[in-house]
């Protein structure tokens, strides 16, 4: 049986006194799209941020392509190559607030990391960047600065930027929550396409339609634990747990 792309075992994380993640186990197969739902404060974003070690967990193990990434070099596991920055090259992240670099053009935003981290030449990284920007439908914008773009366009640039590092896993942290409703679709369409091309994705979202249509697995979190998980149709249409029902009732009734 093939090793899962991503495996989380017994993840615990606290911020001071507050325990935000109370034992999370999750497995994500290659090419799988996992949608994480839940009320605010449930720990969904924190969980995502653990995967690329923006928030290192206090307890638990994370296996990326079979390699334990919680133990860096010098830990005795022999995994010299899987140190922090290397992990982050394999795992791309897109943020709710886009976080584009305002002092750089769209093209520079996308080509910066391949140039400075992977050491690619300017020509090579810019060619690649142009191709990615075309792919997300922004081929005509590459000389603009981010402030001139709409939210949906900025978010698509952010996706292209993350893809430029050729990650094996993409993390999406409520990427449409800060967008005006009419701009949400273009971003979701981009994500849908990415999924159909076989990208392994972890998506924290409130977009139930997306979860239902694109998700392979839906996970409901509340209070730092996974309350329920399963196929989208099962969790969204016929949830077993009371907490899930309550949450979905609130969200779907809008």
């Amino acid at each position: 049986m093939a090793e899962a792309m991503l495996r989380l075992e017994g993840i615990h994380k606290r911020f001071g006194q507050l325990e935000v993640l109370r034992g999370i186990d999750l497995e994500v197969a290659k090419g799988e799209v996992v949608c994480i739902l839940g009320p605010s404060g449930s720990g969904k974003s924190t969980l995502l941020r653990c995967v690329n070690l923006l928030e290192p967990p206090e307890q638990g193990e994370i296996f990326l392509e079979g390699h334990d990434i919680c133990k860096g070099p010098g830990s005795g596991t022999g995994e010299q190559s899987w140190e922090l920055n290397f992990v982050r090259q394999r795992v791309g992240m897109v943020f709710q607030q886009f976080n584009l670099f305002p002092h750089k053009t769209v093209l520079e935003n996308v080509s910066l990391a391949p140039r400075r981290v992977l050491g690619k030449s300017r020509r090579e990284s810019e060619t690649k960047a142009r191709a990615l920007l075309e792919r997300v439908g922004l081929g005509d914008k590459f000389n603009q600065y981010p402030e001139r773009l709409s939210g949906g366009q900025q978010q698509r640039v952010a996706i292209a930027r993350a893809l430029a590092m050729e990650p094996h896993v993409m993390l999406f942290d409520e990427v449409t929550s800060a967008l005006d409703p009419e701009l949400v679709k273009e971003v979701l369409d981009t994500m849908r396409e990415l999924a159909s091309e076989g990208m392994t994705m972890l998506v924290v979202t409130h977009e139930m339609g997306f979860a239902r249509e694109v998700g392979d697995q839906v996970v409901f979190m509340d209070g730092g634990v996974i309350v329920e998980r399963g196929k989208p149709a099962d969790v969204l249409d016929d949830p077993r747990e009371e907490r899930t029902r309550r949450f979905l009732g609130l969200v779907l009734d809008r």
């Binding site: 690329n52 923006l54 920055n85 290397f86 982050r88 090259q89 795992v91 791309g92 992240m93 943020f95 607030q97 976080n99 584009l100 670099f101 910066l112 990391a113 400075r116 981290v117 992977l118 952010a158 930027r161 993350a162 590092m165």
Partner: peptide, 15 residues
């Protein structure tokens, strides 16, 4: 400078 800037940069693999 908002923290998100450094987070985005680090997420791309920058030291």
């Amino acid at each position: 400078i908002p923290r998100g800037q450094a987070e985005a940069a680090r997420s791309l693999g920058m030291s």
